[in-house]
Design a protein around this nucleic acid. Structure first.
Lengths: 228, 228, 228, 228
DNA sequence: CATGAATGAGATTTCATTCAT
DNA sequence: AATGAATGAAATCTCATTCAT
C-alpha cells in the first residue's frame, strides 16, 4: 500500500478519465511484459508497445520503470490475498480453509502464470516491496491460524512459523505442479499435501508419547500409494 | 526462450595449475558479485575486478557470462546437496534426518547469503539450470523419503509431493529466519517446524474421521465455480 | 547558429487584462527558473509550474522557449539600465556618477542574483540578444562619458574603450563581491575601485609627465618577440 | 588541479601509450566541440566523432561528460596562466607587465576563440570549476601586484580588488575587440586601456591633492542614502 | 596465459511542442 | 483562455564481447 523506498505520498492518479485509462493500460501491459521477459529484459519500449501508447507516455504516469514494477507487484499481492480471502469465506473448518486457500492460490498462479517470475524478480528491484509481498501475506495467514488455534481447531504451534511453513508448501507445489506441469495431477497433489498438513509425516504409533497430541490415525485412511 | 538448455557440454578445464587457479578465482568472484548485484547488474568487469584478473582473461576460461552463471548455480546446488548428505549421514531416525537436514540447510544459507538471490535469478538466465537445481534436489529427497516409508518410519504418502512440501518449508523458513532475521530464534523455529512436520496441524482426534476429510461447511457455499 | 536574430518581431501582447496577468506571471516565473536551473535545464513544465498555470498555457503567450528567454534577458537589461539611470540622475560630478552607478549595479545584482547566470546563458541561446545586452549598455555608457569629457570632467580617452573597461570592472567586482561574497566588505571594495578608476595605478608622480604616458623601460627590453 | 565536486583522487591516466593518445584526442576534440556548440548541445557522439573514436570509447577514459568538461576548463586556465606568465617574464616595469599580460591574453583568446564560451558555460556545469578558473587567476595576479606595490611601482591599493578590476578590463576588452571584432584596432584599444590603467580617468590636476584623493563634490551631496 | 583498449547496440529518461477539449 | 494528455526525437550511459599485443 505504501511506496516502499520512495516515500512520495500519493501515487499521482491522473485527474481525467482518459488519463486513468492510459495508466491502467500501462499497468496491465507491464504485468504481461514483466512476466514474459523479466524485469531486466522488459524495456519501457516493450511495455508501451504492448500498451499501445507512445514511449514518452510512460513517463507521464510513472517516474521510472521501478515504480511501475513495484506497483505491479503490490497489485498482484493484493489481488491474490483478496481472491484467497473470498475463496475461504464462510468455511468453518480450518483444514477446509487450508485446502480451499491452496486451491485458490493454484488457480491464481495458473491464471497469472507470471506471478512467480514477477515476485522473484522483485528481490533485485526493490527489496522492500519483495518482503512486503511475503510479510503482508504471512501476517494475515498467521492471524487466521491463531484464531483457529484459539477455537481449538488447530494444535497450538507458533502461528508465525506455521504460516511460513504453509506458505512454503503452497509456493513449491504451485511452482512444481501449476507452473511447470500445468494442472496435471493437481488434485491428487492437493490431497497428499492436505494429508501431510493434517497429520504430519510420522508413522510410528503416537501412543507411545504419553502426553502428546494424537494416535494411530494413519491406518484408517486410504494409504495413497506413490504416484508415478 | 533460452537456448543453452544443454548442461554445459564442454566445460573446458584448463590443463595448467595456474590456469586452474585463475578459473577458480573467477568462479568464486562470480558467486560474490552475482549475489551482491544480481545477474544483470553484475558486469564481467566487476567479476574480473573482484577476481583480480584482467577483463580479457575472463574469455579465456568461459565462453560467455551465462555459462559462468550456470556453473555457479550448479556448483552451489552440488555443494548444498553434499553438505546436507554429510550432515545426515549415519542418522537412522528419518525425523532426525529431517531436522539435521534443515539445520544444515540453514547453515549453508547463512554462509552463502547470496544463495537465494543467485538461484532465483537463474529463472531468468537459464530456465533449465533453474529447474535442475530444484529437480535434482527433489529427486534425492524423494528417494530418501521413499526408503523411509519402506522402512515404516514415515507414513505412506506420495514421496515426490512430500519432498516438495518439505523443500518449500525449508526454503521459506530459511528466507524468513536465516536470510532476513539472521540466526535470531532459529532453534525455536526449527522445533516448531519439526513438530508440524511430525504431527501436522490437526488437533482433533484423527480416529474420529472414518474416511472423509471435511464436514458441513461445504454444503452452504456455492459449489466452487469453475475458474475461467 | 541561431536563427531568430530579429529582436522579437511581434511580441503578441494579449488584449485582456487577465491575459496580461498570466503573461507577466510566466515572465516572472521564467526569470526565477532560468536563473536557478539555467536555460537548458529549465523546462517549460518547470516554468508553468512555478507560474501556477497549466503547461499548454505557455504556448498561448509565447511561440517557444527561446522567445521567452530573449524577452527575459531584454527585460533585465532594460530594468538594469533604468535603475542605474535613475540612481545617478542629478549627480554632476562624473566620478560620483561612476560610484553611484556601480553601487546601483551592485544593488540590482544582489536583488537579481540570477542576472549573471541568465545573461551568460544568453550567449548560447541567442547570440544577438546576448550582444544586445552589452552593446546597448555600452552605447549609453560611452555617451555619458563623452559628455563628461566635453565638460572637462574626465580625461580625453576613447570613450568606447573606457566604457568597456568600466563595465568590466563592475562586472567582475559584482561577481566576486556581490554574487559570491554577499555584501561582505562591498563598501571598501567600492572605495578601492573608485580610487583606481580615478587615478589609475601608477605611483610615480603624475606631474612629471607633461603629456606622455610612459618612460624608459620599453627600450631596455628585447622588442617583444613573436609568440609561437 | 583538484577535481572539484568529485573528489576522485586520481584522474585515471591510462597506462598504455595508446590509451594516452586516445585520451588526448578526446580532450582536444572536446575543446573544439564544446567551444562550437556549447556544453549542452555538444553530445558525446559529437565529441567522439570529432576525435575519431567510437562512442563507447569515451567512457573508457571519462566517467561522464561533466568530468571531461571540467578537465577542459582546468586545462584552459592552466595554459592561459602559463602563457601570460611566460609573456611577462623578465619585465621589470609593472605597467609593462600589465600591457604584455593583456596582449598575451588577447593572443590566447584569439587562438582559442572558444575560451569565453567554454568558461562561461562552466557556471552551469560545475560551479566549483568555474570559480576555480577565476580565483586561481586572481590569486596569482594579486600576488604580483602586491609585490609591485612593495617595490613602489604601484600605488598602494587593496591588491585583490585591483586584480579583479584588471581582470574585468581584460575580459571585457577581449570579448569586445578580440572575440567580436577580430584584431581590428586592438593596439589602439590597448593603448587607451593602459592609459586608463596608469592614470585613471580623472582629469583634474592630481598635484593639488597632497595625499588624499578627492575633493569637495562629496560634501554637496546627500550623504549617500541607504541602499534599499 | 594474460592483458586492456576499443566497439556499438541498446536501454532509460527528458522535454519542447501539438492538439482535442 | 486555459488545460493537460500524448508524442517521439535525441541524449547519456552501460557492457558483453572482440582482438591485437
Amino acid at each position: 500500500m505504501n511506496r516502499s523506498s520512495t516515500p512520495s505520498p500519493e501515487r499521482a492518479v491522473p485527474p481525467t478519465p482518459r488519463g486513468q485509462r492510459t495508466r491502467q493500460r500501462l499497468l496491465r501491459a507491464a504485468e504481461t511484459v514483466f512476466g514474459e521477459k523479466g524485469y531486466e529484459h522488459a524495456s519501457i519500449a516493450d511495455i508501451t508497445r504492448e500498451g499501445g501508447v507512445a514511449l514518452g507516455t510512460f513517463y507521464v504516469y510513472f517516474p521510472d520503470k521501478k515504480s511501475l514494477f513495484v506497483e505491479v507487484v503490490d497489485g498482484l499481492g493484493e489481488r491474490l490475498r483478496r481472491l484467497i480471502a473470498e475463496s475461504v469465506e464462510g468455511l468453518e473448518d480450518r483444514l477446509e480453509v487450508e485446502r480451499e486457500g491452496l486451491r485458490a492460490f493454484f488457480r491464481f498462479a495458473n491464471e497469472h502464470r507470471n506471478l512467480y517470475r514477477i515476485v522473484r524478480q522483485a528481490e533485485f528491484v526493490d527489496e522492500a516491496c519483495y518482503r512486503r509481498y511475503y510479510v503482508t501475506f504471512a501476517r494475515g495467514y498467521a492471524r487466521g491460524l491463531k484464531q483457529a488455534m484459539a477455537e481449538g481447531q488447530v494444535r497450538r504451534l507458533d502461528s508465525e512459523t506455521l504460516a511460513w511453513c504453509l506458505m512454503g508448501i503452497g509456493d513449491y507445489l504451485g511452482m512444481r505442479w501449476v507452473l511447470w506441469e500445468g494442472e496435471q495431477g493437481q488434485e491428487q497433489v492437493l490431497d497428499t499435501a492436505m494429508d501431510f498438513i493434517r497429520h504430519g509425516m510420522d508413522d510410528r504409533p503416537a501412543v507411545a508419547e504419553p502426553d502428546n497430541k494424537r494416535r494411530k490415525p494413519r491406518s484408517a485412511r486410504a494409504p495413497r500409494r506413490d504416484t508415478r
